[in-house]
Design a protein around this nucleic acid. Structure first.
Length: 289
DNA sequence: CACCAGGTAGGAT
DNA sequence: ATCCTACATGGT
């Protein structure tokens, strides 16, 4: 199979029931699922299910190999999933600029399939407010409970497994979130639901500078420097954002003798951060391969 | 029963 | 400005 359709420089094949996309060393769904930037990708029997907004897709690896199969329309593939997975960006270019650093060169060997997803800003705001002083499996559970309780039913992954959208500010407004296991973060999210609707958070990207958006984020209770940087990177795709959490700080101590300047990687510092985060955690035995 | 998890707010130096 | 501590919940 060669040639095919092209959208945003992405070459794909259209077949009945979905889309075939050639496999690519800079796109590994398992690595992305485990990277801690998204909390809603699930894997069952080798099939990944992904939700963004009110869209849902299953992605599998066909027997013959070399391709990923997307269970979606061509329209959704072009307008939802190519942007979501940032497929129009060439991550090999970033990687080539990173190999002068031996730790990053190793990180590419093990986690070069990570990309920076383009996720919904509001979903990132809530998810990363939940993330503070919390661990990744529990963040997942909290997000899932929120969706199940207040999101909209949008699809069925299987006969017994319904898929819910992430609840919008409108859907959360006025709700009591104290029984979802969110702990002290529930109040922050209850208040955030009043600040803006989902579309307003989204279109801020077109109206405001990155500095202005970050400033607005930092004014919210429950959002500090680290969470704001995560929202900027994963929600607003501000690739120069370099979130510093406990792992990144430990890594900088261990690997870079206490000083690392993300400015050296202008334009993709957030990608560098994700590879450092994933690789360093794996070295510390925090994640199982 | 301590300690920890992709931190932050609010108060005291 | 920088340092300190409480903070909900669930898992080792």
């Amino acid at each position: 199979m060669s040639g095919g359709y092209v959208a945003n420089n992405v070459v794909y094949q259209k077949i009945p029931g979905g889309i075939y996309l050639p496999e690519n060393p800079t796109f590994d769904l398992k690595q992305i699922m485990d990277s801690g930037q998204c909390f809603r990708i699930r894997e069952t029997n080798g099939v990944y299910s992904v939700v963004t907004g009110t869209h849902f897709v299953r992605i599998g690896r066909p027997r013959r190999g070399g391709y990923l199969f997307y269970d979606c329309s061509e329209d959704d593939f072009q307008h939802i999933w190519i942007p979501y997975f940032d497929l129009f960006t060439n991550y090999e270019e970033y990687q080539q600029k990173m190999v002068k650093d031996s730790f990053l060169a190793e990180a590419i060997q093990h986690y070069g399939g990570i990309r920076i997803l383009c996720q919904d800003p509001w979903e990132m705001i809530v998810s990363f407010v939940i993330s503070q002083r919390n661990n990744i499996p529990r963040i997942r559970n909290c997000v899932e409970r929120l969706c199940k309780r207040y999101g909209s039913l949008i699809a069925w992954e299987s006969e017994e497994y319904p898929i819910f959208s992430f609840p919008t500010p409108d859907q959360l407004r006025g709700k009591d979130l104290s029984d979802l296991g969110l702990g002290y973060r529930a109040k922050y999210i209850e208040d955030l639901a009043y600040y803006n609707n989902e579309a307003a958070w989204l279109c801020m990207k077109d109206v405001c500078s990155a500095d202005e958006i970050k400033e607005i984020l930092l004014r919210q209770k429950g959002i500090g420097e680290k969470v704001a940087n995560c929202i900027m990177l994963f929600g607003y795709h501000h690739m120069d954002s370099y979130p510093r959490d406990v792992w990144i700080n430990r890594m900088i101590e261990d690997v870079y003798q206490g000083s690392f300047d993300p400015q050296e990687y202008k334009g993709f510092a957030g990608y560098v951060q994700q590879l450092q985060f994933a690789y360093y955690r794996s070295l510390q035995g925090e994640v199982k391969k």
